[in-house]
Design a protein around this nucleic acid. Structure first.
Length: 384
DNA sequence: TACACGTGGAT
DNA sequence: TATCCAAGTGT
Protein backbone atom coordinates (compact mmCIF):
# COMPACT_ATOMS: atom_id res chain seq x y z
CA UNK A 1 0.00 0.00 0.00
CA UNK A 2 1.36 3.43 -0.95
CA UNK A 3 1.54 6.35 1.44
CA UNK A 4 -1.13 8.14 -0.59
CA UNK A 5 -3.47 5.15 -0.37
CA UNK A 6 -2.95 5.00 3.36
CA UNK A 7 -3.64 8.73 3.78
CA UNK A 8 -6.74 8.59 1.59
CA UNK A 9 -8.06 5.60 3.48
CA UNK A 10 -7.59 7.28 6.84
CA UNK A 11 -9.36 10.42 5.61
CA UNK A 12 -12.26 8.48 4.11
CA UNK A 13 -12.67 6.49 7.28
CA UNK A 14 -12.56 9.54 9.50
CA UNK A 15 -14.98 11.76 7.58
CA UNK A 16 -18.39 10.11 8.17
CA UNK A 17 -18.22 10.50 11.93
CA UNK A 18 -16.53 13.92 11.87
CA UNK A 19 -18.46 15.75 9.16
CA UNK A 20 -20.45 18.76 10.26
CA UNK A 21 -24.11 18.56 9.21
CA UNK A 22 -24.04 21.35 6.62
CA UNK A 23 -27.19 21.91 4.57
CA UNK A 24 -25.55 21.20 1.21
CA UNK A 25 -24.34 17.86 2.53
CA UNK A 26 -27.72 16.42 3.38
CA UNK A 27 -29.55 15.63 0.24
CA UNK A 28 -29.71 14.53 -3.16
CA UNK A 29 -32.78 14.16 -5.27
CA UNK A 30 -30.65 13.06 -8.21
CA UNK A 31 -29.67 9.41 -7.71
CA UNK A 32 -27.18 9.68 -10.57
CA UNK A 33 -25.07 12.00 -8.49
CA UNK A 34 -23.44 11.83 -5.11
CA UNK A 35 -24.93 15.24 -4.48
CA UNK A 36 -26.94 17.85 -6.38
CA UNK A 37 -24.40 19.54 -8.66
CA UNK A 38 -26.09 22.94 -8.70
CA UNK A 39 -26.35 23.12 -4.93
CA UNK A 40 -22.73 22.02 -4.69
CA UNK A 41 -21.62 24.67 -7.18
CA UNK A 42 -23.51 27.41 -5.33
CA UNK A 43 -21.98 26.30 -2.04
CA UNK A 44 -18.45 26.17 -3.43
CA UNK A 45 -18.71 29.63 -4.96
CA UNK A 46 -20.10 31.09 -1.73
CA UNK A 47 -17.37 29.38 0.25
CA UNK A 48 -14.60 31.06 -1.75
CA UNK A 49 -12.75 33.07 0.89
CA UNK A 50 -15.82 33.00 3.10
CA UNK A 51 -16.40 31.15 6.35
CA UNK A 52 -18.89 28.31 6.61
CA UNK A 53 -20.93 30.04 9.32
CA UNK A 54 -21.56 32.99 6.99
CA UNK A 55 -22.47 30.78 4.06
CA UNK A 56 -25.05 28.50 5.70
CA UNK A 57 -27.95 31.01 5.93
CA UNK A 58 -27.04 32.59 2.58
CA UNK A 59 -27.00 29.22 0.82
CA UNK A 60 -30.39 28.23 2.26
CA UNK A 61 -31.98 31.50 1.14
CA UNK A 62 -30.30 31.44 -2.27
CA UNK A 63 -31.29 27.84 -3.01
CA UNK A 64 -34.88 28.49 -1.91
CA UNK A 65 -35.04 31.30 -4.44
CA UNK A 66 -32.88 29.82 -7.22
CA UNK A 67 -33.19 26.03 -6.85
CA UNK A 68 -31.91 25.35 -10.38
CA UNK A 69 -29.60 27.04 -12.89
CA UNK A 70 -32.70 27.89 -14.90
CA UNK A 71 -34.24 29.76 -12.01
CA UNK A 72 -31.17 31.94 -11.64
CA UNK A 73 -30.82 32.39 -15.39
CA UNK A 74 -34.39 33.70 -15.60
CA UNK A 75 -33.69 36.32 -12.93
CA UNK A 76 -31.95 39.63 -13.46
CA UNK A 77 -28.35 39.93 -12.40
CA UNK A 78 -29.46 42.50 -9.85
CA UNK A 79 -31.60 39.87 -8.09
CA UNK A 80 -28.57 37.65 -7.78
CA UNK A 81 -26.62 40.55 -6.32
CA UNK A 82 -29.42 41.28 -3.87
CA UNK A 83 -29.36 37.66 -2.71
CA UNK A 84 -25.62 38.08 -2.19
CA UNK A 85 -25.94 41.19 0.00
CA UNK A 86 -23.69 40.90 3.03
CA UNK A 87 -21.56 38.05 1.68
CA UNK A 88 -18.87 40.19 0.06
CA UNK A 89 -16.86 39.63 -3.12
CA UNK A 90 -19.94 40.54 -5.15
CA UNK A 91 -18.29 39.68 -8.44
CA UNK A 92 -19.01 36.08 -7.47
CA UNK A 93 -22.74 36.73 -7.76
CA UNK A 94 -22.39 38.28 -11.21
CA UNK A 95 -20.23 35.39 -12.39
CA UNK A 96 -22.59 32.79 -10.94
CA UNK A 97 -25.47 34.45 -12.77
CA UNK A 98 -23.42 34.36 -15.98
CA UNK A 99 -22.60 30.71 -15.30
CA UNK A 100 -26.30 29.91 -14.94
CA UNK A 101 -26.95 31.48 -18.35
CA UNK A 102 -24.18 29.37 -19.85
CA UNK A 103 -25.49 26.20 -18.19
CA UNK A 104 -28.90 26.81 -19.71
CA UNK A 105 -27.51 27.71 -23.14
CA UNK A 106 -24.83 25.05 -23.42
CA UNK A 107 -25.79 22.24 -21.02
CA UNK A 108 -29.59 22.12 -21.29
CA UNK A 109 -29.89 23.59 -17.82
CA UNK A 110 -28.02 20.73 -16.18
CA UNK A 111 -24.95 21.68 -14.17
CA UNK A 112 -21.97 19.87 -15.71
CA UNK A 113 -19.87 17.61 -13.53
CA UNK A 114 -16.95 17.19 -15.92
CA UNK A 115 -13.94 19.18 -14.64
CA UNK A 116 -13.21 20.71 -18.05
CA UNK A 117 -16.79 21.83 -18.61
CA UNK A 118 -16.97 23.23 -15.08
CA UNK A 119 -13.69 25.07 -15.50
CA UNK A 120 -15.10 26.84 -18.55
CA UNK A 121 -17.90 28.42 -16.51
CA UNK A 122 -17.46 32.04 -15.32
CA UNK A 123 -16.22 32.21 -11.74
CA UNK A 124 -15.17 28.56 -11.68
CA UNK A 125 -11.43 28.13 -11.28
CA UNK A 126 -9.33 25.06 -10.80
CA UNK A 127 -10.35 24.58 -7.17
CA UNK A 128 -14.11 24.96 -7.67
CA UNK A 129 -14.13 22.73 -10.76
CA UNK A 130 -12.32 19.98 -8.88
CA UNK A 131 -14.53 20.31 -5.83
CA UNK A 132 -17.81 20.10 -7.74
CA UNK A 133 -16.63 17.28 -10.01
CA UNK A 134 -15.41 15.18 -7.11
CA UNK A 135 -18.09 15.95 -4.53
CA UNK A 136 -21.10 15.91 -6.85
CA UNK A 137 -19.98 13.14 -9.21
CA UNK A 138 -17.15 11.29 -7.53
CA UNK A 139 -14.62 12.25 -10.21
CA UNK A 140 -10.95 11.89 -9.21
CA UNK A 141 -10.28 15.65 -9.54
CA UNK A 142 -7.68 17.35 -7.36
CA UNK A 143 -8.39 20.37 -5.16
CA UNK A 144 -6.16 22.83 -3.34
CA UNK A 145 -7.60 25.48 -1.06
CA UNK A 146 -6.20 27.03 2.09
CA UNK A 147 -7.14 23.99 4.17
CA UNK A 148 -5.69 21.41 1.79
CA UNK A 149 -2.48 23.37 1.41
CA UNK A 150 -2.05 23.57 5.19
CA UNK A 151 -2.81 19.89 5.83
CA UNK A 152 -0.45 18.72 3.06
CA UNK A 153 2.33 21.14 4.06
CA UNK A 154 2.18 19.81 7.63
CA UNK A 155 1.84 16.19 6.66
CA UNK A 156 5.09 16.42 4.68
CA UNK A 157 6.71 19.24 6.69
CA UNK A 158 7.05 21.09 3.42
CA UNK A 159 8.63 24.54 3.89
CA UNK A 160 7.41 27.73 2.24
CA UNK A 161 4.84 30.49 2.68
CA UNK A 162 1.15 29.89 2.00
CA UNK A 163 1.02 31.88 -1.22
CA UNK A 164 4.42 30.87 -2.55
CA UNK A 165 3.95 29.57 -6.10
CA UNK A 166 6.31 26.57 -5.82
CA UNK A 167 4.54 25.39 -2.67
CA UNK A 168 1.15 25.75 -4.34
CA UNK A 169 2.33 23.80 -7.38
CA UNK A 170 3.67 21.09 -5.09
CA UNK A 171 0.34 20.94 -3.27
CA UNK A 172 -1.57 20.44 -6.53
CA UNK A 173 0.72 17.57 -7.41
CA UNK A 174 0.19 16.03 -3.97
CA UNK A 175 -3.57 16.45 -4.28
CA UNK A 176 -3.52 14.75 -7.66
CA UNK A 177 -1.66 11.84 -6.17
CA UNK A 178 -3.97 11.61 -3.18
CA UNK A 179 -7.21 11.73 -5.15
CA UNK A 180 -5.88 9.14 -7.62
CA UNK A 181 -5.29 6.82 -4.69
CA UNK A 182 -8.69 7.41 -3.09
CA UNK A 183 -11.48 4.89 -3.36
CA UNK A 184 -14.03 7.72 -3.03
CA UNK A 185 -12.39 10.92 -4.33
CA UNK A 186 -15.22 13.23 -3.30
CA UNK A 187 -15.20 11.93 0.25
CA UNK A 188 -11.42 12.13 0.40
CA UNK A 189 -11.46 15.74 -0.84
CA UNK A 190 -14.18 16.85 1.52
CA UNK A 191 -12.45 15.05 4.36
CA UNK A 192 -9.13 16.82 3.93
CA UNK A 193 -10.89 20.18 3.83
CA UNK A 194 -12.95 19.30 6.88
CA UNK A 195 -9.80 18.22 8.66
CA UNK A 196 -8.15 21.56 7.88
CA UNK A 197 -11.20 23.51 8.99
CA UNK A 198 -11.91 21.70 12.25
CA UNK A 199 -8.73 19.89 13.40
CA UNK A 200 -5.62 20.98 11.50
CA UNK A 201 -6.35 24.66 12.15
CA UNK A 202 -3.86 27.49 11.49
CA UNK A 203 -3.27 28.05 15.21
CA UNK A 204 -3.39 25.40 17.93
CA UNK A 205 -4.14 22.35 15.79
CA UNK A 206 -5.91 19.54 17.66
CA UNK A 207 -3.46 16.80 16.75
CA UNK A 208 -4.92 14.43 19.35
CA UNK A 209 -8.06 14.26 17.23
CA UNK A 210 -6.26 13.95 13.89
CA UNK A 211 -6.50 10.70 11.94
CA UNK A 212 -3.20 11.57 10.20
CA UNK A 213 -1.24 12.37 13.38
CA UNK A 214 0.74 9.15 13.14
CA UNK A 215 2.20 10.05 9.75
CA UNK A 216 2.46 13.84 10.16
CA UNK A 217 6.05 15.00 9.75
CA UNK A 218 5.38 18.52 11.07
CA UNK A 219 3.99 17.01 14.24
CA UNK A 220 7.03 14.78 14.55
CA UNK A 221 9.16 17.91 14.35
CA UNK A 222 7.17 19.27 17.29
CA UNK A 223 5.69 22.42 15.76
CA UNK A 224 2.93 21.74 13.23
CA UNK A 225 1.68 25.31 13.43
CA UNK A 226 4.88 26.52 11.74
CA UNK A 227 3.62 25.09 8.43
CA UNK A 228 2.95 26.76 6.15
CA UNK A 229 4.81 30.00 6.88
CA UNK A 230 2.52 33.06 7.01
CA UNK A 231 2.24 35.03 3.81
CA UNK A 232 3.02 38.73 3.60
CA UNK A 233 0.01 41.00 3.29
CA UNK A 234 -0.45 44.29 1.48
CA UNK A 235 -1.03 47.33 3.64
CA UNK A 236 -4.46 48.96 3.70
CA UNK A 237 -4.88 52.34 2.06
CA UNK A 238 -7.09 55.02 3.58
CA UNK A 239 -10.24 56.20 1.83
CA UNK A 240 -12.63 58.90 3.02
CA UNK A 241 -16.32 58.55 2.18
CA UNK A 242 -19.04 61.14 2.69
CA UNK A 243 -22.47 59.52 2.51
CA UNK A 244 -25.59 61.64 2.17
CA UNK A 245 -28.94 60.22 3.31
CA UNK A 246 -31.73 62.33 1.84
CA UNK A 247 -35.43 61.80 2.55
CA UNK A 248 -38.42 63.20 0.74
CA UNK A 249 -41.78 64.11 2.25
CA UNK A 250 -43.16 60.59 1.86
CA UNK A 251 -40.23 58.97 3.64
CA UNK A 252 -38.42 57.65 0.59
CA UNK A 253 -34.64 57.87 0.47
CA UNK A 254 -32.28 58.72 -2.34
CA UNK A 255 -30.09 55.89 -3.67
CA UNK A 256 -27.51 55.71 -6.39
CA UNK A 257 -25.88 52.80 -8.15
CA UNK A 258 -22.12 52.44 -8.15
CA UNK A 259 -20.28 51.97 -11.40
CA UNK A 260 -19.70 48.33 -12.32
CA UNK A 261 -16.33 46.92 -11.33
CA UNK A 262 -14.06 47.92 -8.50
CA UNK A 263 -15.06 48.15 -4.88
CA UNK A 264 -18.75 47.34 -4.33
CA UNK A 265 -19.17 47.49 -8.11
CA UNK A 266 -22.79 47.76 -9.28
CA UNK A 267 -24.21 47.89 -5.77
CA UNK A 268 -26.58 50.59 -4.51
CA UNK A 269 -25.70 53.16 -1.89
CA UNK A 270 -26.59 56.55 -0.48
CA UNK A 271 -25.14 59.37 -2.55
CA UNK A 272 -21.49 59.08 -1.63
CA UNK A 273 -18.40 61.17 -2.31
CA UNK A 274 -15.11 59.31 -2.03
CA UNK A 275 -11.74 60.91 -1.65
CA UNK A 276 -8.21 59.95 -0.71
CA UNK A 277 -8.05 63.08 1.44
CA UNK A 278 -10.34 64.01 4.36
CA UNK A 279 -13.38 66.14 3.47
CA UNK A 280 -13.94 69.14 5.75
CA UNK A 281 -17.35 70.31 6.95
CA UNK A 282 -17.53 73.23 4.53
CA UNK A 283 -16.75 70.93 1.60
CA UNK A 284 -19.22 68.36 2.84
CA UNK A 285 -21.96 70.96 3.17
CA UNK A 286 -21.33 72.40 -0.27
CA UNK A 287 -21.33 68.97 -1.88
CA UNK A 288 -24.52 67.95 -0.06
CA UNK A 289 -26.34 71.08 -1.25
CA UNK A 290 -25.12 70.41 -4.77
CA UNK A 291 -26.50 66.86 -4.56
CA UNK A 292 -29.94 68.20 -3.67
CA UNK A 293 -29.91 68.55 0.11
CA UNK A 294 -31.96 71.25 1.80
CA UNK A 295 -30.38 73.87 4.03
CA UNK A 296 -30.92 71.73 7.13
CA UNK A 297 -28.49 69.01 6.06
CA UNK A 298 -26.16 68.10 8.92
CA UNK A 299 -23.64 65.49 10.10
CA UNK A 300 -25.18 62.44 11.78
CA UNK A 301 -22.11 60.44 12.73
CA UNK A 302 -19.47 58.22 11.27
CA UNK A 303 -17.69 54.88 11.42
CA UNK A 304 -14.65 53.10 10.07
CA UNK A 305 -15.15 50.22 7.63
CA UNK A 306 -12.34 47.78 6.94
CA UNK A 307 -11.91 45.70 3.82
CA UNK A 308 -8.92 43.60 2.86
CA UNK A 309 -7.19 46.48 1.11
CA UNK A 310 -8.82 49.61 2.48
CA UNK A 311 -9.70 51.50 5.62
CA UNK A 312 -12.77 53.53 4.67
CA UNK A 313 -13.64 56.37 7.04
CA UNK A 314 -17.35 57.01 6.54
CA UNK A 315 -19.03 60.23 7.56
CA UNK A 316 -22.80 60.28 7.26
CA UNK A 317 -24.79 63.44 6.60
CA UNK A 318 -28.55 63.58 6.40
CA UNK A 319 -31.54 65.82 5.86
CA UNK A 320 -34.44 66.52 3.58
CA UNK A 321 -34.10 66.65 -0.18
CA UNK A 322 -35.27 69.71 -2.02
CA UNK A 323 -38.34 69.50 -4.28
CA UNK A 324 -38.35 67.28 -7.30
CA UNK A 325 -37.73 69.81 -10.08
CA UNK A 326 -34.96 71.61 -8.32
CA UNK A 327 -33.48 68.29 -7.30
CA UNK A 328 -33.20 67.08 -10.87
CA UNK A 329 -31.82 70.38 -12.04
CA UNK A 330 -29.30 70.37 -9.25
CA UNK A 331 -28.18 66.85 -10.06
CA UNK A 332 -27.72 67.29 -13.76
CA UNK A 333 -26.03 70.63 -13.27
CA UNK A 334 -23.74 69.20 -10.67
CA UNK A 335 -22.51 66.28 -12.70
CA UNK A 336 -23.76 65.29 -16.15
CA UNK A 337 -22.26 61.82 -15.69
CA UNK A 338 -23.78 61.32 -12.24
CA UNK A 339 -24.61 57.67 -11.51
CA UNK A 340 -28.22 56.53 -11.81
CA UNK A 341 -30.31 57.55 -8.81
CA UNK A 342 -33.71 56.47 -7.48
CA UNK A 343 -35.98 57.42 -4.62
CA UNK A 344 -37.00 54.25 -2.82
CA UNK A 345 -39.11 53.34 0.18
CA UNK A 346 -37.38 51.70 3.16
CA UNK A 347 -38.98 48.40 2.12
CA UNK A 348 -37.58 48.67 -1.39
CA UNK A 349 -34.22 49.66 0.05
CA UNK A 350 -34.06 46.34 1.87
CA UNK A 351 -34.37 44.48 -1.45
CA UNK A 352 -31.68 46.45 -3.26
CA UNK A 353 -28.23 44.89 -3.68
CA UNK A 354 -26.10 46.78 -1.20
CA UNK A 355 -22.87 46.23 0.69
CA UNK A 356 -22.82 46.02 4.44
CA UNK A 357 -21.09 49.39 4.88
CA UNK A 358 -23.94 51.19 3.12
CA UNK A 359 -26.54 49.25 5.10
CA UNK A 360 -24.75 50.63 8.09
CA UNK A 361 -24.97 54.16 6.64
CA UNK A 362 -28.77 53.94 6.39
CA UNK A 363 -29.00 52.34 9.81
CA UNK A 364 -26.98 55.18 11.31
CA UNK A 365 -29.32 57.68 9.62
CA UNK A 366 -32.32 55.97 11.18
CA UNK A 367 -33.78 54.53 7.98
CA UNK A 368 -35.67 51.43 9.06
CA UNK A 369 -35.67 48.03 7.40
CA UNK A 370 -32.34 48.74 5.79
CA UNK A 371 -30.96 45.31 6.58
CA UNK A 372 -33.02 42.26 5.67
CA UNK A 373 -30.27 39.92 6.87
CA UNK A 374 -29.31 38.80 10.36
CA UNK A 375 -27.49 41.55 12.20
CA UNK A 376 -24.18 42.26 10.54
CA UNK A 377 -21.55 43.20 13.01
CA UNK A 378 -18.34 44.80 12.13
CA UNK A 379 -17.23 46.23 15.46
CA UNK A 380 -18.83 49.59 16.08
CA UNK A 381 -15.79 51.70 15.41
CA UNK A 382 -15.23 55.17 16.84
CA UNK A 383 -15.74 58.26 14.76
CA UNK A 384 -13.08 58.61 12.07
C1' DT B 1 2.81 37.68 -11.49
C1' DA B 2 0.85 40.49 -8.20
C1' DC B 3 -2.99 42.61 -7.10
C1' DA B 4 -7.93 43.73 -6.14
C1' DC B 5 -11.91 42.07 -4.41
C1' DG B 6 -15.89 42.18 1.39
C1' DT B 7 -17.04 40.63 5.49
C1' DG B 8 -16.82 38.83 9.97
C1' DG B 9 -15.08 34.96 13.05
C1' DA B 10 -11.18 33.64 15.88
C1' DT B 11 -7.58 34.71 18.91
C1' DT C 1 -7.66 46.08 19.93
C1' DA C 2 -5.16 44.43 15.99
C1' DT C 3 -4.16 40.93 13.07
C1' DC C 4 -4.92 36.93 10.64
C1' DC C 5 -7.37 34.72 7.35
C1' DA C 6 -11.53 31.85 5.39
C1' DA C 7 -13.92 25.73 0.68
C1' DG C 8 -10.33 31.55 -4.84
C1' DT C 9 -10.93 33.92 -9.31
C1' DG C 10 -10.05 37.17 -12.90
C1' DT C 11 -7.14 40.42 -14.74
Amino acid sequence: MTAAQRTAGLLEGWFPSAARPLPWRTNTHDPGQVRDAWGTLVAEVMLQQTQVSRVVPAWLAFMARFPTPGALARAQEEEALAAWSGLGYYRRARLLHAAALRIVAEHHGLTPTDPRALRALPGVGRYTAGAVASIAAGAPAAIVDGNVLRVLARLHARPGAAGWAPLVRWAWAQSERLVAAASRPGVCNEAIMELGATVCTPAAPACVRCPLAGQCRARALGAPERFPAPKARAARTDLHALALVLRDASGRVLCQRRAPGGLWGGLWQAATLESAAPIDDAGAHAWARMRGAGAGVRPLGGFVWLTTHRRVRFRVWGGAGVCCLRRRAAQSAASPAAPPTRWVSPAELAQLPMGSAQRRVFELAGVGAADPRPAAAQPRGPLP
